[in-house]
Design a protein around this nucleic acid. Sequence first.
DNA 1: ACCTGAACACCGTTCAAGT
DNA 2: ACCTGAACACCGTTCAAGT
Lengths: 199, 199
Amino acid sequence: MQLHKRDVIDAAAALLDSYGIADLTMRRLARELKVSPGALYWHFPNKQALLGAVADRILQTVDDVPGDWRDRVEAVCARLRDALLSHTDGAELVSATFASGHSQAMARIVEVLADAATQAPVAPSKGELAARTVVYYVLGFTADEQSRLQWDASGAALPDEQAVLTTNPTERFAFGLRLLVDGMAAARAETVAAARNFE
Amino acid sequence: MQLHKRDVIDAAAALLDSYGIADLTMRRLARELKVSPGALYWHFPNKQALLGAVADRILQTVDDVPGDWRDRVEAVCARLRDALLSHTDGAELVSATFASGHSQAMARIVEVLADAATQAPVAPSKGELAARTVVYYVLGFTADEQSRLQWDASGAALPDEQAVLTTNPTERFAFGLRLLVDGMAAARAETVAAARNFE
DNA sequence: ACCTGAACACCGTTCAAGT
DNA sequence: ACCTGAACACCGTTCAAGT
């Protein structure tokens, strides 16, 4: 029976969760679906587009919330991190598709964060940049966290000096995010000061 | 005549600059050096280690400077960005090796930034985290900037809506970094407030 | 419209055997 | 000690031909 786009994405997500991103190959996926590798290229132009679709599915649950701008930024980032941690190599996959511009969902998340930033005292023209800065942080932190998580889930012992990097990850995540939120809060003073300089 | 580690790294860096990270393969590198692919594995245990050595060479010039903590953070980040932009796909390569923990130079840069952070009003225990947050930003921003740079150097036209993301990159870079530096400056107030809560 | 089969042009890594 | 040659077990992508 016919192969649908949804089946392909389902199977790809299952492969990711079970074996990780290194085993999420077009050939492996085709084998799993019992089709020839070429069949996938009827439904997706290339591997990047397929990975983008998987990323978008992972990010489905990441939504905006009502509240002030701090609540919105913190909630979206917490949901983004949770979504990434819920899938093997989730952070790595989403980072790659974000970098290649193939994730629609990430574009939407940047928009939400940019909107929240302009509710903060960030100038509208800087909203997207502030949003991207937050996203770079969440992706970087979570990729790091997840690789350590998966490393010691695999039974390998971490050197003692790295132990501090694995305890209280949620608290550590909040600390770095607060740095950015505080920076955004400080932006008003600078905007006002800059405006004065031009008077 | 004999193949030395240095020759391999030199040739790898040349390959990177001329053709990009996708063409920096063990086989291609061996061909360039007129040796068999297996020869490289006498000098490096695997590809990751080789890429780590190339990353470390790219980051040679990134050094600490004297000054107050803001100057140090800003100088190190500016130098890091410059170093990445000086090599094709430099940001992507260094991001990958940093994530895999194979870059000694990145470890050193994190140490320098962590030290600067503890000169800022960041608690010593949070210094490394603040440093990593800064690094996530620099790598994310620069990878983004470089991919756009290389994309339109290749002659492709960018959609109008993306134009705002390519103008004044240095100024835009400084804006995001200021967000983090301001956040670090705000950390003292929080540390003091938190201490009060425990009295 | 949707898929197969087969090919094209590659990969990273290992390892017995050579010098 | 250092390297070759050849193999192993794969990749992503294309495309004529089939149904």
